[in-house]
């Protein structure tokens, strides 16, 4: 459903390096390459997922998209307009963050009324307790009045996450950047939060950019999925294709590591697809970042940087070996 001609969000060659200060007297300043050349577009109504493990840069990316940290290089455009040119007040109604760890996302000395009235005050929008109560009711906190005077520490984890969602969606933004919106919550609470996100999408046509390592969440709410590894996108495509017919060996390993929830299929535990940890983003491997753990790695992988290349309809993968295999397969 494309409403305007330009995408809701367009990211080009986005880079974020964090300088790593070694010591006062060492001259060589090293960089942690958190996000290293990422480009993609998000269209209105098409939820997109960014999947990856800790240290892959997905959280840094989310923070840049919300304007919390500035990028080192590259551009972020909202509806064709560079982020720097979007009016600050207007920006808040375009993008809103819903971040992991709802406890630290809420100011502990502010009660729910103060937390929820902030976005309204910021925009000089009239509001009263009724407005706030209906917001609380929408996120399933009832009776709403009993919540207005509470402080974050008086709420359960699920209730705090509901408040975060209520605050983010109070001004019904076009895009909500959700960083691990359900992780750390109890399973039965996770599903309630997920249902809430779905409800808001239907009501206000909010588009979600979901940053998560949780494939279940991605599967149930996102149309498109991007897989990141060491600051780069290694595979992107329609969620169904990426999750069912993954091309990149990393995507495959990630999916294979996912608990089956079936006691008769324990292959994910019995044969873990890859070993070791993600290498440091300060000194990433040359060429393809995944080659040190990749079962398919060949000599070429250390020499050339793989680029995203089409491997199916709207489906792109960055891997020499897979793409070479496709060429051979295609010639038959």
């Amino acid at each position: 459903m494309k409403v305007s001609n330009s995408p809701l969000l367009s990211v080009k060659e986005l880079v974020k390096y964090f300088p790593v200060k070694r010591s006062m007297f060492s001259r060589s300043v090293k960089f942690l390459k958190a996000v290293d050349g990422v480009s993609f577009e998000v269209w209105q109504g098409e939820n997109i997922a960014i999947v990856g493990e800790s240290g892959c840069g997905k959280t840094t990316l989310g923070r840049m998209l919300c304007g919390i940290i500035p990028p080192t290089k590259g551009t972020i455009e909202y509806e064709g307009e560079p982020m720097s040119k979007v009016d600050k007040k207007q920006f808040v109604s375009v993008v809103q963050p819903i971040f992991q760890d709802p406890y630290s996302a809420l100011n502990p000395v502010m009660n729910v009324r103060q937390i929820l009235s902030k976005p309204f005050k910021l925009h000089d929008i009239d509001f009263n307790d009724e407005t706030l109560c209906s917001l609380l009711e929408q996120v399933g906190l009832s009776p709403p009045r009993s919540f207005l005077k509470r402080y974050p520490h008086q709420l359960s984890g699920g209730q705090r996450q509901r408040i975060v969602i209520a605050r983010a969606l109070a001004l019904n933004p076009k895009l909500a950047v959700c960083d691990e919106p359900v992780s750390g919550l109890d399973p039965t609470v996770q599903i309630l939060i997920l249902n809430l996100l779905r409800k808001f999408q239907q009501m206000y046509r909010t588009t979600y950019l979901i940053i998560s390592h949780d494939i279940r969440l991605v599967k149930s709410i996102c149309q498109r999925t991007m897989v990141m590894y060491l600051g780069k996108i290694v595979e992107v495509g329609p969620t169904g294709d990426v999750l069912q017919r993954p091309f990149h060996p990393y995507t495959k390993s990630l999916l294979q590591s996912f608990p089956s929830r079936d006691p008769d299929d324990t292959s994910w535990v019995d044969n873990p697809p890859i070993f070791g940890d993600v290498p440091s983003a300060i000194d990433p491997p040359s060429g393809c970042g995944f080659r040190t753990r990749c079962p398919l790695a060949v000599e070429e992988c250390a020499l050339k940087n793989p680029t995203l290349t089409t491997c199916g309809p709207n489906h792109y993968v960055a891997c020499h070996v897979v793409l070479d295999g496709l060429k051979v397969g295609g010639s038959h």
Partner: peptide, 14 residues
Amino acid sequence: LDLTVQAQILNLLK
């Protein structure tokens, strides 16, 4: 822990 690490640790316990 990350998914791939989780699988490794559970494999170790098993």
